[in-house]
């Protein structure tokens, strides 16, 4: 029989609520809490339940993840299930974090469930199967069942359907499929047009994501008095990457003091961006983050001031939501120093 391992938080393990949210990761043989329901429907044996406090996962993420990956190192399992997390934000993020880590390390399918309002959906839907769940534990049975049914398809090697049929949040993967209806593109197109003309509801086959456009700022009147900051998504960091910014799908950013240097030296700075050949940027980091040119402009008096730090993260695979969050955080720091303008370098 195939094997599964289930991740739940301290609350659903019956350990305690908020006061026990710092509970360190633990692995128990057998079934705890929601694992019982999962085991009853899953066509696999749930051999272990992993329990971790939501705050512990949130505040000591690396330690929590590494401990749990360590638990799993010698275990055999075909599928990993977490939650359901409903609308519980920290629990949702924890389920997403651990599912992503387990999938990446052990290459097994990882499945979780949360409510659409849970911030974990936006953060993790790209990498893992997150099923749309209820708002509260009242939906426990249904949500567990949805996950289990899908898990059973995977376990049996059956072909799984598209997101809207199966009930998971779209992972940003679009693939072709033949329509069971056999309806041709011509028929679908004309039918869609007739509905649109008659103001009837219709469904596009390619939803265009809402674009969150930012208006272009008014020009800086006198550059020679302006305080300019440098920001990049090109992944330029000190060689030891002190903020541990990820090489793809970044959720972290850093800022690095350039007040006392004239350029970014190779060997002192490098790129950690995984989306392009790093050779040229490693040989001369200024080609992505042109501190050398900006310092020269500063000396010439072309700009009034160069902000003491440059800011860096990685753009490849990074979600719009994460990028927006990081951008807002950076803006807070830039405002503190009265920065007038930003040069954003990309790759």
């Amino acid at each position: 029989m195939k094997k599964a391992i289930h991740y739940i938080n301290q609350f659903f393990a019956g350990i305690g609520g908020e006061e026990k949210a710092d509970y360190k990761p633990e692995i128990r043989e057998g079934l705890v809490g929601p694992a019982i329901a999962l085991n009853s429907i899953l066509e696999a044996e749930v051999t272990h339940t992993i329990i971790c406090g939501d705050n512990f996962m949130g505040s000591n993420t690396d330690e929590a993840v590494n401990t749990i990956l360590g638990f799993l190192e010698d275990k055999e399992f075909d599928i990993f299930v977490a939650g359901p997390a409903f609308q519980a934000g920290r629990y949702g993020v924890a389920c997403g974090t651990i599912c992503k880590a387990v999938k990446e390390r052990f290459n097994v399918p990882a499945i979780t469930s949360m409510n659409v309002e849970n911030p974990g959906v936006e953060m993790f839907k790209k990498g893992i199967y997150i099923f749309e769940g209820g708002k509260s534990a009242a939906k426990m049975r249904e949500d567990v069942k949805t996950m289990a049914n899908f898990a059973n398809k995977i376990l049996k090697g059956e072909k799984t359907g598209p997101a809207d049929e199966e009930g998971f949040f779209p992972r940003g993967i679009r693939a072709e499929m033949w329509l069971k209806s056999g309806k041709t593109a011509a028929e679908r197109g004309v039918e869609m047009l007739v509905k649109k003309l008659n103001d009837q509801p219709f469904e596009t086959e390619l939803p265009i994501p809402k674009q969150d456009r930012v208006p272009i700022a008014p020009p800086i009147k006198d550059l020679s008095k302006a305080n300019i900051a440098m920001v990049t998504t090109g992944g330029i960091v000190p060689v030891d990457n002190p903020d541990r910014i990820q090489s793809a799908s970044a959720t972290r950013w850093g800022r690095y003091d350039i007040s006392k240097i004239d350029r970014l030296e190779s060997g002192v700075y490098k790129t950690i961006h995984a989306g392009f050949d790093p050779a040229a940027a490693d040989a001369d980091p200024n080609i992505i983050m042109p501190i050398d040119a900006m310092k020269a402009y500063l000396k010439e008096g072309k700009i009034g001031k160069l902000h003491d730090y440059f800011y860096s993260t990685v753009g490849t695979g990074t979600t719009q939501a994460e990028a927006a969050r990081m951008g807002k955080e950076m803006v807070g720091k830039l405002r503190e120093d009265n920065v007038d303008g930003v040069i954003m370098t990309s790759t």
């Binding site: 598209p162 779209p170 072709e176 329509l179 056999g182 309806k183 593109a185 011509a186 197109g189 390619l206």
Partner: peptide, 22 residues
């Protein structure tokens, strides 16, 4: 790649294929 399938996406309107989120 499908790219080299002769008239493989039948854009003239024959196509019974669509694209879905997975």
């Amino acid at each position: 790649e499908n790219n080299a399938m002769f008239c493989g996406d039948r854009i003239a309107g024959w196509s019974t294929k669509t694209m879905k989120e997975f």
